[in-house]
């Protein structure tokens, strides 16, 4: 219960951010951090609680983002419908990928490589067919009304993102305490033992894939509606996949607050790097790469793991 209260308190504070933060620049920074937390938590459902490290989570993000964009631009349908379709399609694609990998028993590094390859296939496809705008990308026409699911200012975009992210974190909070979550973690810790006591590993994995894909897809929809432009590299490129896995690894995989912690820590460090070293190309990713290497080397359980160490030291 204290966990839920803490979660709600943090999100209540986050809700107030646009009211307190006067500068557009800083609100945007907080928005991007919250957005990273959403990507990270979506990855964390599968990677942290399910123990399946995906290197291609951009796949689900891109499916969501392109769904909402193509539905509006090519078919003239409402963005709200796109929101539903984008999330649902991303979940379906995730289930298909999950089924194929689980059916043929791909675990560990093999799973990581296959997810990466799927994302690449979609990147090349979206680069080649005409209705995604191919290499030129796709532009969603500006129409800043609620009916078109677009945001007149940063604050309203922020609140929309806030709602999706809250839903995602609540889902994970629920997951931690549910039977489904217990089964998922059992499969993560020892698949054979879990199967021996009657856990259907396939079903559990597919559930985690669907949930993870759904929130990744919703993040994609948000991205498309916020920035109104997509191209194959933005939607399916490896940067998105890296961001999604980096955030929980920094914060602490398989923990509820890890992605939030990781997202704000990463954006904080990136901001400091930009302030001190200027806005050079590649600098952000240099920082991220260094952090990833250092985290795996020295803090494999993330910042949340560090917190546990500190608490234990105080108790002793």
């Amino acid at each position: 219960m204290t966990k839920l209260l803490a979660l709600l308190a943090i999100f209540a504070a986050l809700f107030c951010a646009p009211l307190v933060i006067g500068s557009e620049f800083w609100l945007n920074t907080v928005l991007l951090a919250l957005y990273a937390a959403l990507l990270g938590q979506a990855w964390n459902i599968l990677g942290g609680y399910g123990g399946q490290f995906s290197f291609g989570h951009a796949l689900f993000f891109g499916v969501g983002a392109y769904s909402v964009a193509v539905l509006q631009v090519e078919l003239g349908l409402s963005a709200w419908l796109g929101l539903v379709v984008g999330g649902a399609l991303a979940a379906v694609v995730a289930v298909i990928v999950g089924f194929l990998t689980a059916r043929y028993g791909l675990r560990g590094s093999y799973f990581a490589l296959v997810t990466l390859a799927f994302a690449e296939v979609f990147r090349i496809l979206s680069n080649s067919v005409s209705w995604t705008g191919a290499g030129e990308g796709i532009l969603i026409p500006l129409d800043q009304r609620l009916a078109a699911l677009q945001f007149p200012d940063t604050a309203s975009a922020y609140w929309a993102l806030w709602a999706i992210t809250l839903a995602c974190f609540l889902a994970v909070w629920r997951l931690e305490r549910s039977r489904f979550g217990a089964r998922l973690m059992a499969v993560r810790d020892n698949e054979d033992a879990a199967a021996a006591i009657g856990v259907d590993a396939m079903q559990v994995k597919l559930g985690a894939m669907a949930l993870s894909g759904l929130f990744m897809g919703l993040a994609g929809v948000f991205y498309a509606q916020k920035f109104l432009y997509l191209d194959p590299a933005i939607a399916f490129g490896p940067e998105k996949s890296v961001e999604a896995l980096l955030v929980p690894i920094v914060g602490g995989i398989g923990t509820l607050f890890g992605p939030l912690l990781g997202a704000f820590a990463l954006h904080g460090v990136a901001e400091i790097a930009r302030e001190t070293m200027g806005d050079a190309p590649g600098l952000n990713m240099i920082v991220y790469g260094t952090i990833l290497v250092c985290m795996v080397l020295f803090l494999p359980r993330g910042l949340a793991g560090l917190g546990k160490h500190v608490r234990r030291a105080f108790r002793a």
């Binding site: 490290f53 560990g108 990581a112 890296v242 190309p281 990713m285 790469g289 795996v296």
Partner: peptide, 24 residues
Amino acid sequence: HGRDENILLVTLGLAILIENVALY
């Protein structure tokens, strides 16, 4: 630390680092 995925992650981190230092 006893997990294959960690090696994959650290080499991924190195790849990102090396590539972007080159870009810089």
